[in-house]
Design a protein around this nucleic acid. Sequence first.
RNA 1: CGGGGAUUGGCGCAGUGGUAGCGCGCACGGUUCGGGACCGUGAGGUCGGCAGUUCGAAUCUGCCAUCCCCGACCA
Length: 412
Amino acid sequence: MQGTQTRYSQLFGKTLRNFPTDETSKNAKFLIKAGFINKRIAGVYEILPLGKRVVSKIENIVREEINAIGGQEVSMSVLQPKELWSETDRWEKLKGAMYQFKDSSGKDVGLGFTHEEPMISMVRERISSYKDLPIYLYQIQSKFRDEPRPRSGLIRGREFLMKDLYSFTTSKEELDKYYEIVAKAYKKAFDRMGLDTVYTEAAGGVFTNENTHEFQVLTDGGEDTIFHCENGDFSENKEIAKVKEGGKCPKDGGKIKESRGVEVGNIFRFGDVMSKKMNFNFKDKDGKDKPIFLGSYGLGITRSMATIVEVHSDDAGIIWPETVAPYKIHLINLGGEKVRKESDSIFDKLCNDQVEVLYDDREESAGVKLADADLIGLPERWVVSEKTLKEDSVEVKKRSEKDIRLEKISSI
RNA sequence: CGGGGAUUGGCGCAGUGGUAGCGCGCACGGUUCGGGACCGUGAGGUCGGCAGUUCGAAUCUGCCAUCCCCGACCA
């Protein structure tokens, strides 16, 4: 666990003077320039200390919401054997999309693309009675997908962090019920991290033939196209859409709009399809074997971080919602030794109060420090200078607002 | 996987045949101190890789790699 306060002079991952030229997406440009992430290869990014704090906050919000609906956290292996995936024929189906290779002994192995098979396998080994169901397991872990063309920074990568939840229930009714519960929990989690989502019907791809639902955040930086009602009660992904821009909403007759969106979450009902293929049953009250119903629910952690940046920023930089900001306060001292001493003691005070504060204690010009504060985008900027000290105050400015106010040092 | 563009110090760039330069950053000294300050000194690159043409290649040719964009794909 990282400390709640950091001196910027000690922080690894300082801001860059220029935007990276090999990125065009807003999220990648800002996150790299501001020192949150580092690009390794196409579609693969490393998370620096500032970014790690944001990721942790998003993870914790998601954890809280999933724990609240009965989820139990586990950690599955990333490295997986071919045999497991062959049980559902997905080893073949996912050729070219899943990283598959041979280990030194010639055995076929792959990197986790998703985790239905290993999850089922693990539960299959340990659950056999209706008394043990339902059960809800989730993890937060890196997923690997061999994207033919990664793009849009963290929105579409080849290695990314995802929260994946799996529900194991005894019937379709129970699955449907939980599906709705997850949908509500997702909505709440996204709300908490500052993302407005549109609940959108979509296709299941190689996951399932049944329709699924996506949580779409409307932004031009998105890669999906959705058709949705202006009243917000209806939305379909382009791939299955039966309506068109300007058409009428089948629910309330409202106007249909076409928008770009980022799919930050996606929920699936597998039903008993996988269970039948994998001989995944439970013993019911009547003593008979019945298939376990599976639901699968994904939520992109790093993709959410990127989407937050797409949605919450201005020309100067990121504007983090308070719930996911790496720190709450960006403390800056402008001026000589006297100012430094004062700001040092304000920093100490904030530390004692366990306030999350990033203290830019560098000997840099005002322009550099202020520009960096805008770029990094913490919710509040506190400036200490000769000017504010004359009033025994610090200047407080919210990143999202223009207003500046003076706060008496004695009241901190 | 098709089409297009790019690759030169940490970052951003210039250099179109004669043996590499600028800005920023970095290090040291000094002056500054409310919106990316200034002066001085200094470190740092065999120009993505391999092969070729040439007396001579960052520069020309071929192949390869990597990155970006458009499309296909998107589980």
